[in-house]
Write a protein that binds this DNA or RNA. Structure first.
Lengths: 227, 227, 227, 227
DNA sequence: AATGAATGAGAATTCATTCAT
DNA sequence: TATGAATGAATTCTCATTCAT
């Protein structure tokens, strides 16, 4: 239970964890990278049943490995959750960094963030789910281990807000961090209702665009009212 | 399995459970009413440690009763959580109904909802926390039992949004239910970060007012731009 | 848990416990002799559910008293069972002593014992049931406390067998105690099947007479074959 | 809820469980077969202390396994008892079927049944005890789950009685089923007194032969008086 | 004497984790 | 590496018994 969230063995640990569309789609998915297989299985099962209502053996079954095998790749069930979190949020952050750098306006950036967290991009629904799921589980875990990673994500959002404020396109009377949390929460709130029945993709896209309108409407500087 | 599912005793069950500012603050807190004492203790401990990381015995200790006593008032640990949820959300709903009826504009109503859920009213911080905690843990519980209550709360928010749209003060190009979820999520997102360190009251009030500005900014009809 | 099987308070303890047809039918049954009421309730509930599957509160409910009241008359749940046993077997023994003294032949005596234990006499089904029930419960209890009483009952049967052997009407190549146990067991075996569905009185009487024939046939001296 | 209700593992489950004198005595007793080891331990401990006075942990200890292991082979403590019952009575039935087919006269068959149930054959004392114990405890269990198995055993005895009646060697004025119950009860009554102090083998054999004499004397047709 | 709410020791069961194969 | 049977610590819940009223 030391701070580091990765377990010791970690046999086939991939070197490149950053971009979303990397090796994942190729080698990892196809070959037997057990670690990745377990992580994928974990997302799915945790999403459906919640962390505490999921037995390690259920993850193992979903991953098609033996119970004991999980422990060759992860120190403990807790560590599995943390690894999941760090791995996925890490990917999100990397993606954000890359995508956002390509966009000019803070507004465009915010839009992209929304789309990304809602998981409507390139079939990486997992990413979106994982964030929502994990944040929704173990308080303790979140507080004690995952907070830095989580805060890094919020900071990335806050940075875009700050940028917009500096440029005068976003209102300056709100704290960027508060806004970041609110945005995260709003997106998360939408994702939450999926737990009560998954939506079709169409609905998702509509939600994304309405949310963009809503959030940008709220954050946009009243001065730039022209729109 | 709804609220009415207690075991035998349930002595002196209070008839009036609805309003926030009622006797709760006086008699109930100090004297007997074990059921209420247990609920209060549960909120506190669940909030601090999370539902699954809390032992029934810890709730008992916090409530100053014996372990077994919990089961005189609640069928199981799960039922305790559900009762908590229904009881507290029930209060929130009752409060909303009463308070909101007194206000004229949808904008004022929305503001009040925000303040209420953030728990800055009359020290009922619990209320906000409980919602956040429960919604955040136990997917299953939420999905299977608490969903109706939760949806009722979202509907109450959505109703205000609809009203504003009918009156022309809120933009009509967004789904009231989506907005309701987003608002709930945003508020919840703020509450979540409390888990990473409780804020002082001052910060809370500032958050509330900024959030109101943000949300109203987002929802306000562009036509009513006069502001 | 001392040897004595009666509890301390025992407020209205009746002085006369021996004959079956005594005050029971009058005062005790009609007035509020709680001790007796509890015993009766206990027989009934233990018979239906078994000792270990019966909660003290269930006995209390069946007796129409409060849980705590049981403990004013009996030291513990175990003691309640023992008291039941001793009280009822005591009555059986007293009855046997009286009835049997009036009969001449050992054969008649055995017949009467059979009828008595099968409970077809004077509506005192309770008595028969109690024996079967109690013997069927707690091994430990039986072994440690009730054995003397139980053995006294078996001895009473064995005495009749001995008498018959001395008179030459019963075969002498079997141990009277073995016979007593077998007879007890056979009767008990019949009673047991009642647990799987109570019989009508007619069936009972037929059973009794067939059993008498069977047992007397088995025990009767081959020499006295004339019959 | 029948026998087939185990949890996952159930490793090397033996295919041949029926006959008494099979591999049980060799491999099973000495080596692995945890299921059988647990069953054996359970018989022993239940016999000594009674089902309800035995902790699962005591069975585990007696079987030399961990507490949890019990639950790898049996769903619950209740199921363990039932499995025991069905397994052992199943063996008795199988044994009866086989042995009895080899004997000619109903009298011989009855004798064999008596010997068998008294457990004087091949050290399988367990068999007799288990029946007695189970039938003696847990009314509910017996009534709800074990009744069919139990009745099958009684029926097997009754069938022999019927056969004797058809052949004219057994008296026809008694119900075969009543006789079966009485025989079972008589044997059970003997076994019961073991609870009050185990007998030496010699006494047992004598009991068996006396009981045979007694029972056959009772059941034998008066016409076939020649003897 | 009677009540029944409260108590808390005790037991069954679960499940993360280990380890012999 | 991989397996999955075995482990036993940990936790929920029950219920006999007590005791303030």
């Amino acid at each position: 239970m030391s701070e580091g969230s990765f377990s010791k063995p970690r046999p086939g640990k991939k070197a490149s964890v950053h971009p979303l569309e990397d090796a994942d789609g190729s080698a990892a998915k196809r070959t037997g990278d057990k670690r990745e297989r377990i992580l994928r299985a974990a997302v799915e099962v945790f999403a459906r049943q919640g962390f505490y209502n999921t037995r390690v053996s259920e993850v193992a079954k979903a991953a098609g490995v033996a119970d004991g095998t999980i422990y060759l790749y992860f120190e403990s069930k807790d560590q599995l959750l943390l690894s999941l979190f760090e791995d996925r949020i890490g990917k999100l952050l990397a993606y954000l960094a890359k995508e956002i750098a390509l966009l000019d306006s803070p507004e465009e950036k915010l839009k992209r963030i929304i789309e990304l967290q809602l998981g409507i991009l390139d079939g990486e629904r997992d990413l979106a789910e994982v964030v929502t799921i994990i944040v929704r589980q173990s308080n303790t875990l979140l507080r004690e281990y995952a907070a830095p990673t989580f805060i890094a994500y919020l900071d990335a959002i806050a940075a875009v807000v700050s940028e917009g404020q500096r440029e005068g396109v976003f209102r300056s009377d709100v704290s960027p961090h508060l806004v970041a949390r609110a945005i995260f929460g709003a997106l998360d709130g939408i994702a939450l209702t999926w737990a009560l029945g998954k939506p079709e993709v169409g609905a998702l896209k509509r939600s994304a665009s309405q949310l963009s309108a809503l959030i940008l409407g709220g954050i946009r500087s009243p001065l730039s009212a022209a729109r």
